[in-house]
């Protein structure tokens, strides 16, 4: 186990380093956006004095490097900064509700996104793996082809199109699920689940093809190996040969594809959120970019990057653990 632990620690350290580099990239890229908060909030009638004063208030007049280290220092202490827009709103109304920090703004949205991602994963991962196993078992049959055509057409269609089709069939023609997913705090789990079902199904359609095809390919790739022939010559049923003898050895590539797709579910679901009016982090991100609310944009980017790195790290570790040679050294 010692070697596995060492590998995991190595990967963790590498992950942290990646995150640091990503933070620099995010900071520089976001600050390269044309215009800034002061200009976008004041609009057409902005006087240079007003712009300069808002910039001074927000610290936008400091050099880039100073601002980066201020921000990084804050992030390391768990302080993602203050949302420009909320702070502006608070001073305008004269109330300080405590909701001006980026963390307070992002937290509920992020929780919603994670909820949707988990619901989708809970449906999509088993569904794709089972479909992949069946496609491998009945390879080159009508079932295999139908599965391939179905999953490939769903991945090739735009997300909003899939979303509207599902709304048409499952909300309008057969009112099973609500077409709007406006979830809010205080909802019961069941209600939340029902509300987020249509976006979850849409996302399932989007991510299934990738995972299912990798499962199928990874299994078929192993079918020519001597231990599969041995399993067949032991008189085992085709299903058992695939599930018990091929699948455990095909896990590494499947896990990696699952991780990539889960990362997509956290970071790339803006369109689906917009269609179903789902209050997730994607919408917040897009809105913040529009008004140049830089602290929020940076925090969102950082969260996305962390999600990517963590999921890939988990995939790496699980791939390692799925290999008995590493789990049980000689």
């Amino acid at each position: 186990m010692g070697s596995v632990l060492r590998i995991i620690l190595q990967r963790l350290a590498l992950g942290l380093l990646t995150l640091l580099i990503v933070s620099i990239v995010i900071f520089v890229a976001v600050n390269l956006l044309p215009g800034d908060f002061a200009e976008s909030i004041l609009g057409q009638g902005a006087t240079p004095e007003a712009v300069a004063s808002i910039r001074r208030d927000l610290g936008l007049d400091q050099p880039l490097i100073t601002r980066y280290f201020d921000w990084l220092g804050g992030v390391l202490q768990g302080d993602l900064g203050t949302s420009f827009a909320q702070a502006n709103f608070a001073t305008f109304t004269g109330t300080d509700s405590g909701a001006t920090t980026v963390a307070a703004q992002i937290a509920p949205r992020f929780a919603n996104t994670m909820f949707l991602a988990m619901v989708t994963a809970a449906i999509a991962v088993p569904f794709s793996i089972i479909l992949g196993v069946l496609a491998a078992l009945y390879r080159n049959t009508v079932f295999d082809r139908a599965t391939n055509i179905f999953t490939l057409s769903s991945i090739s269609s735009p997300e909003f199109f899939l979303a509207y089709i599902l709304i048409l069939f499952l909300a309008v023609l057969n009112p099973i699920f609500p077409s709007l997913s406006n979830i809010f705090e205080g909802m019961s789990f069941g209600e939340r689940l029902e509300k987020s079902m249509l976006p979850a199904l849409t996302l399932t359609l989007v991510v299934t093809a990738h995972m299912m095809r990798m499962t199928r390919a990874a299994i078929i790739n192993l079918l020519a190996s001597p231990y599969i022939e041995m399993a067949r010559l032991k008189g085992l049923s085709p299903m058992r040969v695939i599930v018990k003898h091929a699948l455990p050895n095909a896990l590494a590539p499947i896990i990696n594809v699952i991780a990539l797709n889960l990362a997509y579910l956290i970071t790339g679901v803006v369109v689906v959120e917009v269609v179903f009016v789902y209050p997730g982090i994607g919408q917040l991100f897009v809105d913040s970019v529009k008004i140049r609310d830089i602290p929020v944009v940076q925090a969102c980017c950082l969260i996305f990057a962390t999600a990517f790195i963590l999921l890939n790290l988990t995939a790496d570790i699980m791939s390692i653990l799925s290999n008995p040679r590493l789990r049980h050294p000689k």
Binding site: S225, Y227, E229, M230, H245, P248, N249, P324
Partner: peptide, 12 residues
């Protein structure tokens, strides 16, 4: 089989 190393399933 000829190669026992290849014909035993490495996962079990």
């Amino acid at each position: 089989a000829q190669s026992a190393a290849a014909s035993f399933n490495p996962a079990h």
